[in-house]
Design a protein around this nucleic acid. Structure first.
Lengths: 342, 342
DNA sequence: GCGGCCTACGAAAACGTTTTCGGAGACCGG
DNA sequence: CCGGTCTCCGAAAACGTTTTCGTAGGCCGC
């Protein structure tokens, strides 16, 4: 039903080749012809069929957002949403559309990265949720296709990473607690061999050492980034430890902080009066808890936006692959108590 | 680089037509040939190029998720996320991929629904976030393309709606408050001419009348579904009304409930001891507030899943367009106080 | 007046599929 | 032995673009 390039050509009395060149701003088409074609295309409501376009052209191809683990509930909630908002914000500003594909570790094994890209004529992709041992990580480094990973480090000539300085940020967060008089700090840890967990652990460790503290294995609660696990972990901690053995919970994510807070409250204790809690990520939801959680804001939306912009620039050859480290912000809210000097 | 149908054909010693038919389970290809082609395709890692496929075929086309207003912050948060999870859950189970397009009222004016579909060879779509006066609503009823709207009512032979019985659900929620002794109820209202607002209002009204109560204009706080507005509204209410003039806030969405709760707390009052609050939607975030909010769970994820399934069935001709009303669940949590009989 | 170089456009191949049509060969009944 | 009906596959058109190549015509300089 809608007009094809042929209809435009017929109406303008030229061939389809000319229409295509005119509309794509090729140099070798007369100014008047070009304008006439433009006008007619406009009148007919002509829109090029993207399928045909990307089939034919080696040049204009699609850009994709590939989400791994979206369906699993780990790393819950508005992280991905915010990321998407940033990405689609950029897309909308630049008149491009971005297709979204949901995968997981299993489907990665079934269909290779290159196959996925080939299937959908993907010129470049933004990938989020990749674990360091996922098949696609290796595939990425072998690929010549521009792509941007978020929060996963992949070194290769065509791969950019956007991330933040997790070590420094978590160091800063830890220091924040220490500055407020906390010495007895329990770390609520994320998935054990996740990149982000290790970096954050390093940050905490760094801050501990600098302040002459030691992070004992005893004071670490391991989780898989799940709220329930944090709650259960804190609960278990108190069953095996003196209530006075801790004054603050240093959580590797906001969801863990929420879980920890739940557990503390369910014991009849108050936050931050009895125990302080800090989170990490800057999820929206930390504004809705009571008290609001002091956390490190990753500025997730900006992260998405910058990832999209970076990929866009790479595809247009105006920016090389690079590691982009975004700034973070420690946002003070109400979940930390300053301890008097005893 | 990846194998095309031609490579498979060459390796199998047949023509591309045969390969295509074999792989698409056409009847007129010999069993052994089919198996041989299957095996070779497998070995070569052949995957059909979706662009070419949907360009050529009138049959196998794409299915899209079209989100309107995703970038605007109204109707915040995990509503869309949950919807997506449901939709992509279905997609993943059925081996289809669903492309996502983000639009708004403005882009709807710039590019018609048909054009959008044509551009991307969209056979059917799931639409969410449409306002009743959006251009695409009219376009949908004129279209012959199967589609499913979520929470927007569009009557046409090819359009299904998945929704819930908003009137009944809100009635039930209102009744819940009344059953617990609340008579002085303030309604925190959503966007004025939104379909959902009107339905929920009807539900509230219905319950009021049935119980011999009246809903006075004075006891309604209008918002645009924004948390801040709810907070400001409640704040303003208390500046102009007696604190005893209300015992419960009946909110048209969870976000509004969160806003209302904020305002109540910032006045130094407690929930639910001093004021009860109920929300609506069943957002995840209502589990993280303190107290957890009693609300009507829309089962958003299921909503997405069912919408995808419905569209899928329509596209395959095994289910007609219909209005699908999903069940809701009132979930009791901690934000409502039962008032003693005075 | 002729070879050369522009400019502007047409012709046609190519992208990778699906699908229609036709027919070669096998088989069978009479 | 012949006409008919299957089964299976090849040939080729079609989908709507982009892009390469070729060339007609104009203009210039000599």
């Amino acid at each position: 039903m809608p007009a094809t390039i042929r209809d435009v050509a017929k109406a303008a009395g030229v061939t389809i080749g000319t229409v295509s060149r005119a509309l794509n701003n090729y140099a070798d088409v007369n100014y008047h012809t070009r304008e006439r074609i433009r006008r007619i295309a406009q009148e007919l409501g002509y829109r090029p069929n993207q399928m045909a376009r990307s089939l034919s052209s080696k040049h204009v191809k699609n850009i994709a957002l590939i989400l791994s683990g979206f369906l699993e509930d780990t790393m819950l909630n508005d992280f991905e949403t915010m990321l998407m908002k940033g990405i689609y914000q950029f897309a909308s500003e630049h008149g491009i559309d971005i297709a979204m594909y949901v995968i997981n570790s299993k489907t990665q094994r079934e269909k290779s990265y290159e196959q996925l890209c080939y299937e959908h004529n993907i010129a470049g992709a933004i990938l989020f949720g990749l674990k360091t041992n996922d098949p696609y990580c290796a595939a990425l480094s072998a690929s010549h296709r521009p792509c941007v990973t978020i929060d996963t480090e992949v070194r290769s000539p065509c791969t950019s990473n956007v991330t933040l300085d997790d070590v420094a940020a978590f160091d800063e967060l830890t220091q924040y607690l220490i500055d407020r008089g906390h010495r007895k700090i329990v770390l609520v840890h994320g998935r054990k061999n996740a990149m982000v967990s290790m970096e954050r652990l390093a940050g905490a460790h760094q801050a501990f050492v600098r302040n002459g503290l030691t992070l004992t294995h005893d004071a670490i609660i391991y989780t898989n980034f799940l709220r329930e696990e944090a709650a259960a972990g804190v609960d278990a901690y108190f069953r095996t430890h003196d209530p006075d053995s801790v004054t603050a919970f240093l959580c590797m994510s906001d969801m863990l902080a929420i879980g920890a807070m739940e557990a503390v409250k369910s014991m009849g204790c108050r936050v931050p009066a009895d125990y302080s809690i800090v989170g990490y990520d800057g999820l929206e939801v930390t504004n809705y808890t009571d008290p609001k959680i002091t956390t490190v804001d990753q500025n997730i939306k900006k992260k998405g936006y910058e990832a999209a912009r970076l990929l866009y620039d790479m595809l247009h050859g105006i920016r090389p692959a690079q590691k982009l480290v975004l700034p973070h912000t420690l946002v003070e809210r109400g979940s930390v108590q300053t301890l008097g000097s005893e």
